[in-house]
């Protein structure tokens, strides 16, 4: 049972971080379908720090890993920003291209590093067994992960930012009616850039959190198994509101956790359901949930439409 709670909390943390990233970006008017790719690149940044940086201070380690993930995520999200804000490209195509680019790029990069270190090693795996322990505090059977705290802090900050600060409110205006926002002197391009970069930072953070969730090595060829898109489903079901996103993420996190730990429950194990069914569960649930919640959506009105100053 503790194992279920532990996995639920950590997967929910990932979903909250990434979904909040998507939420900020969409509030500014840009649909960020590249979140999946941003997660991969953020995870790569964090994993590289864990591989090459040696320290005994767990605080320093956590700080550096988190920073690396954030910076890498932001850099990668700039690809979306340039294309979709400045060049008015199709946000769906660019997002999809970013997802493919991230997996291919990370694979090529990690393989190059591995092969350079050992010519016989052609895997795309990075191991981080030692540094991983620094993120975890054991409380009895429960493995407390520092990312749970980080997530809570981020959740609070995003709430504050979106609803209580000048910039947050302006950013939301750009997603609802950019022409109106522009008419009162808000720089729409700047606000959208801010939204995209923040989503990049949160996506990268979510990515490193995801690969630290259960395993102590990561094969970058596999990407992040559709988690970026699950986060988007969480965001839609959460109606683009941070606190609702957090609640929904807990639910989704639980279904994802079940596929990891169902063997530990005798009654579930005795049902003899193949493990594939448990693997499908989060996706099936999200489809059902989306079907129920998309009809009356409170999506930002101008999302997905490139801003054109001359348009009436």
């Amino acid at each position: 049972m503790t194992l279920l709670i532990q996995y639920t909390l950590i997967f929910a943390s990932v979903l909250i971080l990434v979904a909040l990233g998507g939420c900020i970006s969409e509030h500014s008017g840009v649909i960020n379908l590249g979140l999946e790719g941003i997660m991969v690149i953020g995870a790569l940044g964090g994993a590289l720090v864990m591989k090459f940086f040696k320290t005994d201070s767990s605080f320093l380690m956590i700080l550096l890993v988190v920073l690396a993930a954030i910076v890498m995520g932001m850099l990668f999200s700039a690809l979306l920003g340039v294309a979709c804000i400045n060049f008015k490209a199709d946000q769906t195509i660019i997002g999809t291209a970013m997802n493919m680019l991230s997996v291919a790029g990370a694979t090529v990069f990690v393989k190059a590093i591995n092969t350079a270190a050992d010519p016989n090693d052609v895997s795309s795996t990075i191991q981080y067994n030692g540094p991983k322990k620094m993120f975890i505090e054991r409380i009895g059977n429960f493995e407390f992960n520092w990312f749970m705290v980080i997530t809570l802090v981020v959740l609070g900050l995003v709430c504050l930012f979106l609803y209580k600060t000048k910039y947050g409110l302006r950013l939301q205006a750009c997603g609802e009616h950019p022409q109106a926002a522009d008419s009162v002197g808000i720089n729409v391009y700047k606000m959208r850039w801010m939204g995209v970069l923040m989503s990049g930072a949160l996506g990268g953070l979510g990515g490193i959190c995801y690969i630290l969730a259960g395993v102590s090595e990561w094969k970058f060829e596999t990407g992040v198994a559709g988690f970026g898109f699950l986060a988007l489903a969480v965001m839609i079901f959460g109606q683009w509101k941070p606190y609702r996103i957090a609640l929904v993420a807990l639910l989704f996190g639980m279904f994802r956790a079940l596929s990891n730990v169902y063997i530990g429950f005798d009654f579930l194990y005795n049902l003899k359901i193949p493990s594939s069914v448990y693997n499908m569960m989060p996706y099936i649930v999200s489809l059902i949930v989306l079907a129920l919640s998309s009809k009356h959506s409170h999506a930002p009105k101008a999302e997905g439409i490139p801003y054109d100053k001359g348009q009436r």
Binding site: A225, A233, N279, M280, Y283, I284, L287, L290, A291, S294
Partner: peptide, 17 residues
């Protein structure tokens, strides 16, 4: 068409299922 679900997200979910 019936539930207004974004086709990209439902498509990805179905891919994994």
């Amino acid at each position: 068409s019936l539930f207004n679900v974004n086709e990209v997200i439902s498509g990805i979910m179905l891919n994994w299922i």
